[in-house]
């Protein structure tokens, strides 16, 4: 049984507009049999934080194209992407890329 995991979940680049415009969220994931990974975190976000239009944030089991996921300020590609096992006090940042100029 994995212990609860406390995270700082942040949104930026406009992704926060899908979360009431709030950029920083303190999140505590409950105990569950398996360890928490990003895949499960995305499901949890969809169920608990994302009220409307999930397609603007998610696609399949991952984030939609154009959103960068950063775990402790590093590209999630370097960390195992969906399979990264979340640690207590991790910072997970979802940034929508900007195109304006």
């Amino acid at each position: 049984m994995a212990a609860p995991v406390s995270l700082q979940v942040e949104f930026g680049g406009g992704a926060e507009l899908l979360f009431d415009g709030v950029k920083k969220h303190q999140v505590t994931l409950p105990c569950q049999p398996e360890p928490w990974d990003i895949r499960n975190l995305l499901k949890w976000i969809k169920q608990n934080m994302l009220k409307e239009r999930p397609e603007l944030f998610l696609q399949g089991e991952s984030v939609r194209p154009g959103i960068l996921v950063l775990i402790n300020e590093a590209d999630w590609e370097l960390m195992g992407e969906l399979d990264y096992k979340l640690q207590d006090q991790d910072n997970v940042l979802f940034i929508s890329t900007l195109h304006g100029g």
């Binding site: 890329t97 900007l98 195109h99 304006g100």
Partner: peptide, 28 residues
């Protein structure tokens, strides 16, 4: 790039580093 009150900056295709498509293989 910039929008609203945020901006982003990157250097691509430089000294063996990634390109824009390495980061964003599919368009939004």
């Amino acid at each position: 790039s910039a929008l609203r009150l945020e901006g982003q900056l990157a250097v691509y295709n430089y000294r063996g580093g990634p390109c824009y498509r390495c980061l964003f293989p599919r368009p939004p």
